[in-house]
């Protein structure tokens, strides 16, 4: 039951992780210090790895192979939140985006490990240790940039004001997802949001960053995208689409 609905929700999880990992890979070779080049690439590798696990489950549910789903699908059919398609911005923007996403993944995965769907629970259990490390890393960074210097505080505040409403979209359910919540496959997004806002709010406040007042997500539907997604996909899919699907790379 609910396979089609579950597939769509799993695809949304996969697309979020894929595009965040993709965006963060743009820092490789350009980070503020060598150690962070390496650390941020680790975060990106983990996100791409998590995307792979979700795309594999998506394939089990739909028969569609991960690389076809990733490289031969157009922007209109991507189900990611706009948060992850935005360009990388400055270091404050990328770090804060990763932090807000990590905090979300941590509360999400804490529920998904108890999902009534065994595969969902299994995948969540694989991802959770990595996400715990992510949150520790990005929390450390947010605190230091928030409290460190006037310039870093200014940039973090600007990034937070820009990102907040985009981040709220993480809690906007896909259509008909209530059935999955009722079946204890996915958690209730409103409960998730409350947990996330409590945790994130406390840490931001401790980092001298004011939680923005916005209450409405930037976009209501995961089918709505900015022009950045099309640009991103044009580049990402260029080599794969130089041959027909099925050619081995």
């Amino acid at each position: 039951m609910n396979d089609t609905l579950l597939a769509r929700n799993v695809l949304a999880l996969a697309d979020d992780s894929l595009l965040l990992g993709h965006r963060n890979s743009e820092w490789a070779g350009h980070a503020p210090i060598l150690e962070e080049d390496i650390a941020f690439a680790n975060l990106a590798l983990d996100e791409l790895g998590h995307a792979q696990l979700w795309y594999e489950l998506h394939q089990e549910l739909t028969g569609r192979e991960p690389d076809e789903t990733i490289f031969f699908r157009d922007a209109a059919d991507y189900l990611n939140v706009q948060l992850v398609e935005l360009p990388k911005g400055d270091w404050a923007f990328s770090m804060l985006r990763q932090y807000l996403f990590d905090a979300y993944e941590n509360v999400l995965l804490a529920h998904l490990v108890n999902s009534s769907n065994a595969r969902v629970a299994e995948i969540a259990a694989k991802q959770r240790p990595e996400e715990m490390y992510h949150l520790r890393h990005t929390s450390n960074w947010v605190k230091r940039l928030g409290l460190g210097a006037a310039e870093s505080h200014r940039r973090m505040t600007a990034a937070l004001n820009e990102l907040w409403a985009y981040a709220l979209q993480l809690f906007a359910p896909l259509e008909n997802a209530q059935a999955l919540t009722d079946a204890n496959i996915l958690p209730d997004p409103r409960a998730l949001q409350t947990e996330w806002e409590n945790q994130v709010g406390a840490h931001l406040t401790a980092s001298a960053l004011a939680v923005p007042a916005a209450r409405a997500p930037r976009a209501k539907s995961r089918s709505e995208h900015t022009a950045h997604l099309r640009e991103l996909l044009t580049e990402m899919q260029e080599v794969a689409r130089s041959e027909v699907y099925g050619v081995e790379w």
Partner: peptide, 20 residues
Amino acid sequence: SVHASDAEMALGNARDVFVR
């Protein structure tokens, strides 16, 4: 060795640099 601004960050950097 790793470069870091403080010990807590150094421990994280050590993990990211030496435990790939």
